[in-house]
Simulated assay, not measured.
Amino acid sequence: MSSRFTIRRSVTALALGAAAAASLVLAAPAAGAAGPQAKTMRLLDQCDIETFNATFGDGFCVKDGSVTVDRFTADLQRGGSGAWWINNRKETIDAGDSLHVVNQGGILHTFTEVKTFGSGVVPPFNVAVDNAPTAVKPDGSAVGFGDIGSSGVGPGSPGLDVVPAKGVHQYQCIFHPWMRTVVTVR
């Protein structure tokens, strides 16, 4: 048998195999069309590297934004900095869907589930929420620094995946308590 015949036969077999595989793919339902979906929630801030790192230490802010520490502090008196936020104040998803939380800012944030919104763990920042009582988690305990391990999302990290049960869920950053969102799972 000539090598030309063997090559032609192999190419023909590969083409037939590819055509069969393509017909299976085309006949299959679209991936994820009826299955669970992932909704991306973005945590954002605009920390100015120079002033934030000079105030809080090298590496505190890793992505240069336009808000200086002085402006951030002044903004606390007006309900928190509008440059610190979660992209969706309200979101509705279906049961089984997930939330993929990413930090597109320059400093650490959390996406902590709370039963009641309230103050966070940095007392000077709580003036932004009128020094409300400390936020309470669904289990009835107050938010604390221990929540960073389960709900902290660092800048540039792979993110945090959350699959909430049916019902209404509230999330806030325990550092920046005006960063809040309500997620309804239907």
Rank of each mutant, 00 (worst) to 15 (best):
S2K: 10
R4L: 15
R4N: 13
R4P: 13
I7T: 12
R8A: 14
R9H: 05
R9W: 02
S10W: 10
S10T: 12
T12A: 13
T12M: 12
A13P: 07
L14T: 12
A15G: 10
G17V: 09
G17P: 08
G17K: 07
A20E: 13
A21C: 12
A21T: 15
L24Y: 15
A27N: 15
A28L: 05
P29A: 09
G32R: 06
A34T: 11
A34D: 13
P36T: 10
P36E: 09
K39Y: 11
R42W: 09
L44T: 09
L44F: 15
Q46M: 14
D48A: 11
D48P: 06
E50Q: 15
T55A: 15
D58V: 12
K63N: 11
D64V: 03
D64T: 04
S66F: 08
S66E: 14
S66C: 13
T68D: 09
T68L: 07
V69I: 13
R71G: 08
F72S: 04
T73F: 14
T73M: 10
A74S: 14
D75T: 14
L76N: 02
G79D: 01
G79M: 03
W84R: 05
W84N: 08
E91R: 02
I93G: 06
D94F: 15
A95S: 08
G96T: 09
D97K: 00
S98A: 11
S98M: 07
S98N: 11
L99Q: 05
L99G: 07
G106W: 02
L108C: 05
H109V: 02
F111K: 04
V114E: 00
S119Y: 01
P124D: 04
V127D: 00
V129L: 08
V129T: 05
D130K: 13
N131Y: 05
T134I: 02
V136G: 01
K137I: 00
P138V: 06
P138A: 00
G140C: 05
S141G: 06
A142R: 00
A142G: 03
G149A: 13
S150Q: 12
V153N: 03
V153A: 03
G156L: 02
G156D: 00
S157W: 02
G159W: 01
G159I: 08
G159F: 01
D161Q: 11
D161Y: 11
V162L: 03
A165K: 10
K166Y: 08
K166W: 09
V168F: 04
H169R: 08
H169I: 04
H169N: 07
I174N: 00
F175S: 02
R180L: 00
T181Q: 05
V182G: 03
V182I: 09
